[in-house]
């Protein structure tokens, strides 16, 4: 131990170290903050500041493009106007709800059995089939909505052609499918048809995504559960109802949450399909479209910001309700 003492006595030889060397020696302390800083800088400028600014805007009236000092403080007037008087906002909310359900429910009703069937009965061709269902999810919604607009057009659209041909099938002079399928070309731009059309396009875009989510959840269900059920004599459809569905519950909750959040923000498909107008009688106008049109066509940034916050709260509440109903109870 004498060596310890001697070492203490000798004044430590401290080489002159530059600031750079000293900073470098403590690099592991400050480097992580430096590495995460781009996110925070960007978020502050393009995430947080716009949010706060949008609260400010929603309490003001006037044309913000001329400078915010030209705007006038109006308190909650924008919100009150939206609640009481803005019939088109109400209409757009109803449209959004309708579209969300009409495109959302079929997504899950079809995705779950489809995923089950892919999981149990496809081996070699599985990836190809999944690819076919998934590819709409990654393609440009604008490009594909335009294509759909042509497919759905009244006089020459492929879809009308197929539907009316089925509807006009004659057996002994009767049209047995006529009650279900149209016998004449449908004008999809009419208010009662535009919503189903939009809903179909949205459904088409997202059904593959949900299938993939459910498939990934099914792959984590232990095989021995099925083996045990097979030994017990359960048929495939019984296995689906008694094993797969209960085990899928967490994923259902997750996927439905994503659908709710996504569908309530629906913008691109209705925007393109209705040519940016909302369609005849605003039948295809969603809340997000209303928000856009109020701001950028009418120049009313205050009301539009209020729309965005109301829509945000609606999404938050519905997500919360979904959590209450479907979420894990613990």
């Amino acid at each position: 131990m004498s060596a310890v003492e001697s070492a203490e006595k000798i004044p430590a030889v401290s080489k002159k170290r530059s600031l750079k060397q000293r900073l470098n020696a403590k690099g592991y302390k400050w480097a992580p903050y430096l590495f995460v800083s781009p996110f925070f800088v960007l978020f502050a400028v393009f995430g947080l500041f716009p949010l706060l600014f949008s609260i400010y805007l929603s309490l003001h009236y006037g044309d913000a493009t001329g400078g915010i000092d030209r705007m006038e403080f109006v308190g909650l007037a924008n919100y009150i106007y939206l609640f009481r008087d803005d019939a088109w906002f109400h209409q757009s909310l109803i449209n959004t709800g309708w579209l969300a359900l009409a495109s959302g429910i079929p997504q899950h009703v079809i995705a779950i059995p489809l995923a089950f069937f892919l999981h149990t009965s496809f081996k070699k061709t599985r990836n190809t089939v999944i690819g076919a269902y998934f590819v709409p999810f990654i393609t440009s919604s604008v490009a594909i909505s335009l294509v759909f607009t042509s497919l759905f057009s009244r006089d020459f659209g492929v879809i009308n052609m197929i539907l009316t041909q089925i509807g006009n099938v004659e057996i002994f002079g009767f049209q047995p499918l006529g009650w279900l399928f149209p016998t004449e070309n449908v004008d999809w731009a009419r208010p009662q048809y535009i919503k189903p059309m939009i809903a179909f396009v949205v459904f088409w875009r997202f059904v593959g995504w949900n299938t993939v989510l459910y498939l990934s959840a099914m792959q984590t269900i232990p095989k021995d559960l099925y083996e045990a059920a097979t030994v017990d004599g359960a048929k495939p459809w019984q296995q689906f109802f008694y094993i797969t569905l209960p085990q899928l519950k967490p994923m259902m909750f997750f996927a439905v949450t994503l659908t709710i959040i996504g569908n309530l923000q629906m913008f691109e498909e209705p925007f393109i399909i209705t040519g940016g107008t909302g369609g005849i009688e605003q039948a295809g106008k969603t809340a997000a479209m209303h928000l856009y049109l109020t701001a950028f066509t009418e120049g009313d940034f205050g009301t539009a910001s209020a729309v965005s916050w109301l829509l945000f709260f609606i999404i938050a509440i519905l997500t919360w309700l979904n959590n209450k109903i479907l979420g894990e109870k613990d």
């Binding site: 070492a7 430590a12 030889v13 401290s14 060397q21 020696a25 690099g27």
Partner: peptide, 25 residues
């Protein structure tokens, strides 16, 4: 080695106090 911060006390290599040095140094 310089991979873990020293809470208290001193380490010398040769006659040099290394507490604040980068592992490489």
């Amino acid at each position: 080695a310089g991979l873990e911060e020293i809470s208290d006390g001193e380490i010398f290599i040769g006659e040099e106090l290394v507490n604040e040095l980068h592992p490489m140094e």
